[in-house]
Structure formats: C-alpha cells, structure tokens
Design a protein around this nucleic acid. Structure first.
Lengths: 337, 337
DNA sequence: AATCCTGATGGAATCGTTTCCATGGGAAGT
DNA sequence: ACTTCCCATGGAAACGATTCCATCAGGATT
C-alpha cells in the first residue's frame, strides 16, 4: 500500500523550473561554464526539486557504468575481507559504488564474472586473479582498466598474451621478502626440515619458498591445497602424517594456518614443542590462539586501498607497487629438539 | 599499445545480420514469441557476433538497474563476511551483481549510502540497519524493495513511519532464544552477576538479555560499545575493572568476545576459572582460542542467503524469517567459584 | 467469397543524460 | 563604425535496449 511511487525528477524538470535548457542544467551541474546568475537559478531549482541525476542516463550516454568491480577468491577469508575494506574506503572518497564477486579461486568462475562485468559495462576492475589470466585478454581489449591485487597472473607460456597482461598494474605484498624472513627465522632456530602449506594461486609464495630454502628443499614437504577449509585441513593433516620428521611449517595464508593448528592438535603434535609454525597473514585471532601464532603480517587493507587508487587514476600507467611485510614473533616457534 | 578498442556489438548488428528488425531480436533473446526459423537465424547471428546485450541500455529503458545492494556495518567482521557470502551465493544463481557498502553502524553514513543507491536506481537492497531507520522511508516511497538482515530497525516513537518500516521483511537470528539459552546455561552453573557487552545496534539482544536476567538485572553490568575494535576493548576492560564481582560475561558479537578475552588476559582475570565467557557468533577461531570459547552460533551465511531470496521474490510479501541459534559448549565457562 | 482472428514482424517512441553544433549578443580590437 | 572573437545558451542527436502499436500474411469460420 502506501502512496503510489512518485515520478522521478529529471533534468528536464529542473530546466523548466529554472527557465533554461537542459544542456545548461547539465553544464552547471557538471561544473561547466555558465553565467553566475544562471548558475544560481539552476542550483536553486535543483535543490528545490531535490533533483538527483540518474546514473542510468549518464552511464548509457557515457558508455560506461561507473563504479569499481572487485573480484576476490573468498570474502570469508579475513585477508580478503580486509582488502575489500580498503577498496571500499578508497572508493567511498570518490563516491564510487563497489560491486563484488567471489571467484573461489576457480578460473572458470572468474571468467564467468569477467563476462558479467563486460555486460554491465564496468570499466574499472580490481581482481585477485586465479588462473593463467587468459580470460583477461578480451576484457583488456574491450578497454577495461584492470588492477591486480595480492597476486599477478601465473607466468604463462603464450608469449602474445603475456605482454598485455604484464602491463596490468598490480599491488602486492612483498611475498619474497616475507617468505625469506620467515625461513631465515626458522633456520636460525635450527630447523632443517621445513614444510610449506600453500593453496593454488599462491605460486609466488611457493616459488619464493623454494628459493629461500635452496638446497635443503624436499619437494615432498610442499603441500598444495584447494580453496576450501576441508581441503586445507586435509593438506595439513596429510603433510604431518606423511612426514613425521618435519619440525617446522610455514603456511601460505591464515586458513591454512588454522588448519595446521587443528591438524596438529588432532595428531597430538604440540606447538611449539614438536612443531614450529609460522603463518602468512596476521589476523586478530592469531594473538588469541594457544599458543599465540608467529606470523608474517601483510598490509591487507592498504593493498586494497592502493589498488583502488590505482584503478581510479586512469591517466598515468603506474608500475607495480610492492608493500612490505613484517615478521611478528609470538609463541608458535621454538628451537629444534 | 595493443589494438584500438573495438566497437561494441549492439542489437542492431544482430538484427542486420539476421535480416530482421531489432524488435524481433529483442523478443527472441528475452524469450518472446517468434517463428522457429527466425529464432534460429537470430540466435545464430548472435553467437556468430558474440553479442552480449548491454545492461546499460536495458537498465535505462526499464528504469531500474538490476543487481542487489548490500549494506553491512563492517565487512571485516567475520559474521558480516559470512552473511555477505550467503548473499553472493544466492545472487549468483540469479546472475545478479551485488554492490556492497559499509555503514560502520553509523546512521549518517547509512543515509548517505541509501542516497547513492537511489541515484543508481538500485531497486533491491539488503541492509543491516543501524539507526532508527527513518532514512529508509524515502527509499521505500521511491519503490525500492528492501529486506533487513540480522536486525530490524530500532522501535521508534514516530508512529507514522513505523508502520511502513514494520512492513519491511527481515531475516533474523533468534536472538531472544539464543540469549535466553546462554543465560540459563550460565545461571545453571551458579552465576548470578552476569555482564553483557553489546554494541549499539544490538539493542534487540540487549533487551533479550534484560528479559532473560529478569530481577537479577544490574544495569551497571550492561556495557555498550561503538563499532571499532578499540571501543570494544575499552568497554570490555572498563566492565571488568568497574565490577570485579562479575563472574560471567555474555558478548553480543565476536569482536566483543575477542576484546573480552584480551581484556581478561591483560587484567589477569583467568577464563574460565575467574570468569565464564559466552560469545555471540561462532567463528572459526573460537575453537583455536585458549580456552576454546563457548558460543551462541548463528547461521550467518544462511541469513544472507535467505535475505537475498526474499529480495528477489518481489511478488508475495513474506513475513519475517527467524532462524535458530545454537549454544555450542566448549571450554570458556565454569562453575561459579 | 467475404470476414474474422491469430501470430509474426518491424518501425518508432521511450528512458535521462551528455555533448555537438549553431545561434545570438556583447565586448574588444582595428 | 565595422569586424572579430568569445562566451553563454538551447535544440537536437546519441547511447542501446524494450515495448507499444500498426501492418500483414495466412488459415479458419460463416
């Protein structure tokens, strides 16, 4: 019930009330030139009628719907939630709406979402890419401005695509340094058999781990998981059971860290006595955990904020931004026994 | 540089290639009636040209931009992240994009966002309302279909507004039962001085707490906080210091639970020996905490999913949906000493 | 055979904005 | 005084879809 929905106030109404043409109203409202008197009359009419320009009309005319699209693997993951928060907080200052999609780290879903983006004529995208990134080629060709966050795309054999994808700006945490610092810390404590739990999509970290460990690398100690909690737990439990000689583990994100703690408890492996644990990404609960977790902190919110800044500054093509990580030592690591 | 951006394929191109009028193409593509032969020719041309209808054109014509808007207080909060995930997963099945905004539990920001929604001609909104909800009246008048999630609006003195707001469907957790169960559990353990930590916006839970405690209520034991982590910690620490006679605390959400654990540690109040703690909302880390936290679990994801379902079914006005909560007993409560 | 009806079809209007272009007037320069 | 220039201004086109409405063909009915 209630009153019937009211007709929308259009620019035409404002023009009529102010006694000017619609073109003039448009110009005044978008900061074009106009005489002081006209400007005042138009502004007056606009406020009196409580006129709000329709984004629909503008978007169609300009052939692009404003706003920023954000594609993350999993909004439930604290890291991506914080990243999202950063994007939102920057977007707010530009008064741009943010449309969000979750990819589940699945290239197919990602391609789907990119298609939807094109349909919506979104022209600004921030994405955490999952696959080899080939689905981005048509989007780039269609004129979208894309910024990658947290990861770039997998190095890909196809040389043609690669160039265009390498031009996509990216905002990253300094994985390499973060992994190196963590590994050095662990080797400093005497650990030699260090395991690494990673998800697909964390290949950069996995590579950095291989580089940091160097000769001591035992491929069996690198355990990949898929994007779900169950898969994370399975990978963690599997690694600990397969290799009881392991004395330290680094996990590629907080979900895997959680899984490692649970699996260790289940298998009666005590942290840090039997196993030292370093987790990528500092989350609020790391401090509440028993024992408090030593972590490689990443500026998640900042990554999102910077990515949003980049995607808004269409003009100059900025290069990749790398933000520092920080090793925060708490209580989950001890000397090798 | 890459090739120049290509011209968009429009319905006109398809019509030309198929040798029919644009009206026919539109009809075929949106499931209207057409002869089998025409249909095939159109579909053929559409695939051959890789035609994707522009949402912009459609939206303008239909005077509404599709998609769902979602307003939450804080995307960083695990509860709202899971709720968002539920919304996204339902929206995906309708192929509807989701635009998200964070209100910070601040009515002013919320009003701002609602204004932006109107500007975008969004006509489907899911919101966790923060204030007295008066900013929703113009939106409802403009024809938006709104669904509240997790909370309804504060009961408001103004009787005119109230009716229209009470018609807004809502998907809620059963706060009342959840609070009652938790309080009964604690009183069953012998606790008499039970504190309650809540945020603004959790007035329903606060009320439920007052009802559940009944005579034993001591207003000083109810501590409100604002939406930030700092404020949560301040409220928790303040409560524990002000009233050392307190033996149990119920927190209105997981951020306050986290704050309570930290504050207790800081003040050397041991859980569960000196203080029993029940937290609203089950989060993954509740199990990892020392001690593991007893919680009132809420179906966060389900709340989001159901809300999205409701907002998509324009037709029948459904009533409020209340979903059950569940007390999960872990290790953070003990008998009164 | 004339009429009616049904279903397919295409032209044109429409949504609300921005922007191109033509027009007009007033100020400045010769 | 005449030309030139510039700026304010408004009409109209454009964006790409949907949808109303008129038209037309062909079959069924009287």
């Amino acid at each position: 019930m209630g009153s019937p929905v009211q007709r929308r106030i259009t620019i035409k109404d404002v023009a009529e009330m102010a006694g000017v043409g619609v073109a003039t109203v448009s110009r005044v409202l978008s900061g074009g030139s106009a005489s002081a008197e006209t400007r005042e009359r138009v502004l007056d009419a606009a406020t009196k009628l409580d006129y709000r320009p329709s984004a629909l009309g503008r978007n169609l005319r300009q052939q692009r719907s404003g706003g920023i699209a954000l594609l993350v693997p999993d909004i439930t993951d604290s890291f991506y939630a914080r990243l999202t928060d950063g994007v939102l907080s920057c977007a707010r200052s530009y008064r741009e709406p943010v449309t969000i999609g979750v990819t589940g780290d699945d290239p197919e879903q990602e391609a789907d979402l990119v298609g939807a983006l094109l349909e919506q004529s979104m022209d600004r995208v921030i994405a955490v890419p999952s696959g080899d990134g080939e689905m981005w080629a048509p989007a780039l060709r269609a004129g979208l401005s894309v910024v990658f966050a947290d990861r770039r795309v997998w190095r890909d054999p196809a040389p043609g695509q690669r160039r265009v994808l390498d031009e996509v700006p990216a905002v990253l945490a300094d994985d390499r340094a973060g992994v190196r610092t963590a590994v050095e810390y662990l080797t400093g404590l005497g650990h030699r058999k260090i395991g690494f739990l990673a998800r697909h999509g964390q290949s950069y970290r996995m590579e950095a781990f291989r580089a940091a460990v160097g000769d001591a690398l035992d491929e069996e100690l690198v355990a990949p998981a898929r994007a779900s909690r169950d898969s994370a737990y399975a990978a963690a439990a599997g690694l600990l059971q397969r290799r009881p000689d392991i004395t330290a583990v680094l996990t590629g994100d907080n979900m895997l860290g959680e899984a490692a703690v649970l699996a260790a408890r289940e298998l009666d492996v005590r942290i840090p006595r039997d196993l030292s644990l370093v987790m990528f990404d500092d989350v609020p609960w790391a401090e509440l955990c028993a024992p408090p977790l030593t972590v490689v902190a990443q500026p998640a919110q900042d990554i999102g904020y910077r990515a949003a800044e980049l995607v808004m500054r269409q003009g100059r093509r900025p290069r990749t931004v790398t933000l520092p990580t920080q090793l925060i030592i708490r209580g989950s690591c001890g000397p090798r026994r």
